[in-house]
């Protein structure tokens, strides 16, 4: 009799255990599903809207899904550069020249803006972090374009995100514009496959960046001793967790990361640029005030143009070369259509 009950008990245990572990297994499958979906269904960045079709009849969606139609008089410029004015006006003119924020942000969109807020101990004058008014104005424009939610985030390497948001001055402008700051939650770094990668096949990426409808990349143009310059592609380092690893083969790994994140719009803040001592800066003598903002839906093109502000050729930067190889964008500044706008003070 006692044996019987023990056996019954063991059977009951077995059923319970299998139900429990089976349930967990199922649950974990459920967890993987959206992630694998994310990794295979690639285009996170909003594709260029069909209204931008090249009237010459060239195919707009190339195999690479990257190269935009070549510039013609009737289409938007490939790069817009605004110079000489307040940061807000520079951003507004540059984005307007590209067709306005409505081209990138649709009603109800969840927008992530990724400025460079690399440390928590510098104010914007030192040009280590993106200009707060540039970021604030982008938030405002996204909301005007009908965005449902606009969040601003970066994962600093010096200090925690919340103190960096505050000390950089960015939080104040973002909140005033009606946006939100996204405090970094370690849970949201998810192991993500990068299908097109040549080197960085897997990486822990902040999931909000992957799930957002629109990612707007807002680097500040500054010096960096290995990459030479921190621009749009380098700025994407701030959405991943393990950064020291990237330095091994930086150019290619940045291109790999860019192929996964694909920001819809890159706006390079060159209101102030940092000529030396990047990324942290700290000497005003290294800062040059250029009052310039560069915008493009092509991250490689935006970076290529920004490189010239420092007297460099686009191909001087390894990540631009890798980005070209992977077909992530263009660097032929001589042939692409560039609209140069003098905003005036």
């Amino acid at each position: 009799m006692e044996n019987q009950t023990r056996r019954a008990f063991l059977q009951w245990m077995a059923i319970q255990m299998s139900a429990f572990f089976g349930g967990s297994l199922l649950a974990s499958c459920g967890k993987q599903e959206p992630h694998s979906l994310q990794t295979t269904a690639l285009p996170i960045a909003k594709p260029i809207q069909p209204t931008e079709v090249d009237p010459t009849g060239a195919p707009t969606q190339s195999e690479q899904a990257t190269a935009e139609p070549s510039a013609t008089p009737n289409s938007h410029p490939h790069i817009a550069v605004a110079r000489g004015g307040e940061p807000e006006a520079l951003v507004r003119h540059a984005v307007a020249a590209l067709g306005g924020m409505e081209r990138f942000v649709s009603t109800g969109n969840d927008v992530i803006i990724k400025p460079n807020v690399c440390v928590d101990f510098r104010t914007y004058e030192y040009a280590a972090t993106t200009n707060p008014w540039v970021v604030g104005e982008i938030v405002r424009m996204c909301l005007e374009a009908g965005a449902g939610r606009v969040r601003v985030m970066d994962f600093p390497f010096g200090g925690d995100s919340e103190s960096a948001y505050w000390n950089s001055g960015i939080q104040e402008q973002v909140l005033a514009a009606g946006g939100e700051m996204e405090p970094i939650r370690f849970l949201k770094f998810v192991e993500t496959e990068i299908p097109n990668a040549l080197d960085l096949k897997k990486c822990q990426i902040y999931e909000d960046v992957l799930l957002a409808d629109v990612v707007i990349n807002v680097p500040i143009a500054k010096h960096h001793s290995l990459a030479r310059l921190t621009l749009g592609m380098k700025n994407l380092m701030g959405v991943i967790r393990d950064r020291p690893y990237m330095h091994g083969n930086l150019g290619q790994r940045l291109a790999d990361l860019t192929s996964r994140v694909r920001p819809a719009l890159t706006i390079v803040d060159a209101v102030r640029i940092l000529q030396r001592g990047g990324p942290g800066g700290g000497r005003l003598s290294d800062v040059q005030k250029l009052d310039t903002v560069i915008a493009s839906s092509d991250i490689v093109a935006a970076d290529s143009y920004a490189a010239t502000l420092f007297g460099l050729q686009p191909t001087d930067l390894s990540y631009i070369v890798s980005g070209l190889n992977m077909g992530l964008g263009r660097a032929d500044l001589e042939t692409m259509k560039i609209e140069d706008i003098a905003v005036g003070a």
Partner: peptide
Amino acid sequence: EQDCIVCEEMCPLPEKAIEL
């Protein structure tokens, strides 16, 4: 003889204490 500048990059001083 591999590329790595992490220590120089991270140095927070206005005049970096690590040179390349």
